[in-house]
Simulated assay, not measured.
Amino acid sequence: MHRITAHQPYPLFNTAATRRLENAAAAALPPHTLMQRAGLAVAQLAQAMAPHARTVWIACGPGNNGGDGLEAAMHLQRSGRKVVVTWLGQPDTAPADAKASWQRARDACVVWADTAPGDLGANDLCIDALLGIGVSSSPHSPARTPDARLQACLQALHRSPAPVLAVDLPSGLDAATGPFAAGLAPAPPPHQHYHLHHQAPPPRHTLSLLTLKPGLFTAAGRDAAGQVWLDDLGVEPG
């Protein structure tokens, strides 16, 4: 895992290149391997970021980004953390890897909740595993209307007093260009109420998986991503 700084250049990969690399690695490795590696990386960074957290809330979407969050939940629960998971998926419709990680999280006895815990504080941690790299901000793409639960999770993440760790990229961000997709931008702007009270907003971190995406460093991505980290999951770019 690498902390990304401005002191050296890094290669950036668009969505198509990232998916090609992911598909090739998945074909060469045993099933579920990439998600297991991703979840472990997220859990390790989470523990380094918030070693004294009382509660870790993980918002998980229905796809494989959510599966990475579910896998992280299992590791954090087994390490003795109090883990609360909001999962927007269903076992009968989840991708195979995400379903496997859901079962592992269940077996670890994580707590499931429909909404974010109401008592999160500055020493706790939120993990954003809602949406992956398939979101587009292009005006030619169909406008996305988030369902009520997704919208509630997004707003809880933006307004939380706890630090936020995004899995791969902040949910709703266009991985290629950096703006938020229509219907997924923070509202109100992140941490506006902190500025009104002259308080620093909570830190934001993003753990980019496999590759670094251009949108993390352009447009809204620069503020939304916060400190960027990279874990290549043991896969060398081809």
Rank of each mutant, 00 (worst) to 15 (best):
H195S: 13
G118I: 12
E71S: 15
Q36F: 00
V111G: 03
D92T: 02
A185L: 10
A182H: 14
P237Y: 14
R106D: 15
L154D: 06
T55S: 13
A181C: 09
I133W: 13
L165R: 04
A94E: 00
P179A: 05
W112N: 02
Q8N: 10
A224L: 07
G80I: 12
H191K: 06
A113Y: 02
D124A: 07
S101G: 03
L230A: 05
S208D: 06
H32A: 00
G238S: 10
E236D: 09
G89E: 00
A28R: 08
H158Q: 15
M1P: 10
T33Q: 00
G234R: 02
Q151P: 01
P142T: 11
A24S: 13
D168N: 11
L154M: 15
P201K: 09
G226D: 09
D168E: 14
I58P: 04
A225S: 11
V235I: 13
I4G: 08
D119E: 09
A50T: 06
R20T: 01
L210E: 01
R106L: 11
V85C: 05
S160Q: 06
V135F: 03
L230I: 11
G66Q: 05
A129C: 12
A98D: 02
A108K: 01
T218R: 14
L88M: 02
R104L: 09
A113K: 02
P186T: 05
L29N: 00
L29D: 01
W102D: 00
H195C: 06
P186R: 12
H52G: 12
S160E: 06
Q192R: 10
P201N: 08
D174T: 12
P201D: 09
G172V: 03
N64T: 00
T206F: 07
G178R: 15
A185I: 06
P117Q: 03
P51M: 09
W112P: 01
P62N: 03
V135P: 02
L165P: 06
M74D: 05
G215A: 11
L165W: 09
P203Y: 02
S138I: 09
